[in-house]
Amino acid sequence: MRTLTEGPHPWAAGVVAVAGRGPVIAVAEATGWAVRYSSYDPETDTGVELPPAARVPVAVDTPFDLASLTKLFTSVAAVQQIERGTLGIDARIGAYLPEFTGVAEHGVTVRQLLTHTSGLRPELPLYDCPDAAARRDMLRAEAPSAEPGRYLYSDLNMILLQFVLERITGRGLDTLIADGITRPLGMTATRFGPCPGAAATEDQRRPWAKADRGMLRGVVHDENAWALGGVAGHAGLFSTAPDLAVFCRTLLAGGGYGPARILGPDFVELLLTAPGLGFAVDQPWFMGELAGRGAAGHTGFTGTSLVLDPATDTYLILLANTVHPIRRPPANAPRANLATHLSRAVRDA
């Protein structure tokens, strides 16, 4: 794993990998730096390294910006409401948010948001809006750009789902996730930012980024989540690998962990069974050889990923700051390779 953090253009400044089977954590390793650079130099296309004494080494319990792994928590929060009968999986979004005319007029449903089949485009430039009212107006007017029913991955699905959840419960998404997931499971390191001790992400500046915010650490990397105040359905959570191991263990065990239960087994199966609700299923591009027998998981733009393999009761968590000091084209081979190593280790065992 050390090779992932070495050289002038490493895959990531720092990497944490945790793998487990059943109740046992088999691998927990960390390498590299939570903070390695002070800035990015576009003229040399290299990071400006901090003096060795000023760098921060990564540890197994270092918090990372989860990016789109946040979607998994939003999905669980939604399925909790489905289990309670307060949210209909095939209900139209217009029934809950009639003022969101763009999706209401096209009959977009909760299931379509959870499966990325709403037809909504990948994102909107909410970060360019002058205020919250303008952001809300943009989202209300947004209509599907493709025919609903066809897969098109979109952050807007989970942002709208957040608004639905907040409307039907009267509580913020941060409270729903804390009260319904992280607090019952004892996941004390998982929360929306700010998170001062987190691994650094990007020297966020135009033209390569969508906002001029400088070197980020402990505040959400995603520009739209930042524009929404740091709490968003698609991004914004910070967590550690040990906390995520509890989350994985809970889902693989049918929704319970110790004395806590966050979902019933039938509803966990609904989350994880193809096509998956929020979770992607059998995607070899990041699951490697774990894919093909019902593995479920997700990736995050900052360098995070999570894979559950119900067939063998195993999971793999990879946390990395691949965007430190700057975002680069995705390179998913390390994710797939580690998943393949885990698959072969389980097979050989």
Rank of each mutant, 00 (worst) to 15 (best):
V220E: 06
G47S: 04
L72K: 14
L271V: 07
A77Y: 14
A78M: 02
T101L: 10
A178P: 06
V219P: 01
V108P: 10
D90G: 15
F301T: 03
E105W: 14
F238A: 02
L244K: 11
W11D: 14
T31P: 00
A67M: 06
R21H: 12
P51Q: 13
P196M: 07
M287Y: 14
V231L: 00
L216H: 02
R121W: 05
S38I: 01
D174E: 11
E29R: 04
L216V: 03
V108R: 14
T74A: 10
W285P: 07
G22A: 12
Q112P: 07
R328N: 08
F192A: 09
P51M: 10
L139F: 08
A19Q: 12
I177Y: 11
R140V: 03
D203H: 09
F64E: 03
E269Y: 04
A141E: 11
A146H: 06
I326N: 04
T31Q: 01
V58Y: 03
P329C: 01
E269Q: 07
D266T: 09
I317A: 02
G214T: 13
R136A: 13
G256T: 15
R191S: 12
A143Q: 07
I25D: 09
P265G: 13
P148D: 13
F279W: 05
D179H: 10
T314F: 10
L139Q: 08
L124G: 11
R347T: 13
P23R: 14
E202Q: 06
L156W: 11
E223V: 02
T299L: 07
L113N: 09
P184I: 15
I25E: 12
R171G: 10
H341D: 12
T240V: 09
T201Q: 00
A12M: 06
L338T: 09
L244A: 14
I168R: 05
G288I: 03
T109W: 15
T322D: 05
R135W: 02
L66P: 09
L156C: 09
T304H: 01
W33T: 00
A331F: 07
A227I: 00
R111M: 07
W226C: 00
E142G: 10
G303F: 06
V219G: 03
R206C: 04
